[in-house]
């Protein structure tokens, strides 16, 4: 009997090890698979012409990603500009000011917000944000905007990344030792001064990590953004212009992908670019957060 138990232990150990290795290797497999698929276009077109040209004519095999990259960057920038102050203020309030009871009441809505599917954000964006941008904001600045714009995409995206930033900020703030806060309060600083000069300063790496994670989430968001940003493949010149982010490009063209030579490869390259950027951003910010967590233990 004893032998059987030890054998089971050994077998499960080895099988579980294989699963663990497999799960870890997935990330390499995804990168390799996407690279393999995008290799043809990387060989036939130079990297600079792919990234720095805005000419997108699949039938003449010119694939310039610039307008898509510009679209992705501009909605991400808008989203971060809106989301960061709101998340910072909320995060500080919940971690430093709010009583436990208030906190218990206010955390669930943030969790629920992060659980709502992107397509629902998209529907809501079409119903509320797009008309709001068109009727209430754009009329003061430009002659005409359909509302399906970079700004609408940015606003919807901002709301989607707020719960993510807040949850990371709360973790970061909780790693700051109470002793530091007390030291600052004991020399006569107000609570707000303590937050400004001690808590925020000490959590700077964590805040940066949260922003980087939020940026990478914003880069990859597809359906919600696709539904509200208008999808016109041009470099947006104002926030009321439509834009066409990279993920939307992939999602909108999957059907016709196979019929045009190189088209599939170009779309896979778009996915590969997203993968590489998001992989690096995630790796960097996670390592920062791991360090923070370890130093606080």
């Amino acid at each position: 009997m004893k032998n059987l138990r030890l054998t089971i232990d050994k077998i499960t150990g080895n099988v579980f090890l294989i699963f663990t290795l497999l799960a870890t290797v997935t990330v390499i497999l995804i990168g390799a698979g996407l690279y393999y698929k995008s290799a043809p276009i990387l060989h036939s077109n130079s990297l600079s012409s792919l990234l720095l040209s805005a000419e997108w004519k699949p039938f003449k095999s010119s694939f310039g990603f610039l307008s898509y990259i510009a679209g992705t960057l501009s909605i991400t920038a808008i989203a971060i500009i809106i989301a960061l102050p709101i998340s910072l203020l909320t995060g500080i309030y919940l971690s430093e000011y709010a009583h436990a009871k208030v906190k218990r009441a206010l955390l669930p809505p943030i969790d629920l917000l992060s659980g709502i599917p992107p397509v629902i954000y998209g529907v809501w964006g079409v119903l509320i944000i797009v008309p709001f941008v068109q009727e209430k904001i754009a009329v003061h600045f430009v002659e005409f905007s359909s509302g399906y714009s970079t700004l609408a995409g940015g606003i919807v995206l901002a709301i989607m990344i707020i719960p993510l930033i807040i949850s990371i900020l709360l973790e970061v703030f909780s790693t700051i030792p109470d002793g530091l806060r007390e030291a600052s309060l004991s020399v006569g600083a107000t609570k707000w001064e303590t937050i400004k000069f001690v808590v925020l300063k000490k959590s700077m790496p964590g805040i940066i990590a949260a922003v980087v994670l939020a940026i990478s989430r914003a880069f990859g968001e597809t359906i919600a953004v696709l539904m509200v940003c208008g999808n016109i493949p041009e470099i947006p010149h104002s926030i009321f212009d439509s834009c066409y982010p990279l993920p939307a490009l992939i999602a909108n063209n999957y059907g016709e992908m196979l019929s045009v030579p190189m088209y599939e490869s170009a779309l896979m390259l778009a996915a590969f670019i997203l993968f590489i950027i998001i992989f690096l951003f995630n790796a960097i910010s996670r390592i920062i957060l791991y360090r923070l967590e370890r130093s606080s233990n």
């Binding site: 995804i30 698979g33 393999y36 997203l274 998001i278 992989f279 996670r286 390592i287 791991y290």
Partner: peptide, 27 residues
């Protein structure tokens, strides 16, 4: 191995679903 696995699953958690979609299509 444990640390690497945790880091990798954190990174994979951040990879957007459109990339999974494209990879799934490739497979």
């Amino acid at each position: 191995l444990a640390t690497t696995t945790r880091l990798t699953s954190d990174i994979l958690f951040g990879i957007p679903s459109i990339v999974y979609g494209a990879f799934g299509f490739t497979i």
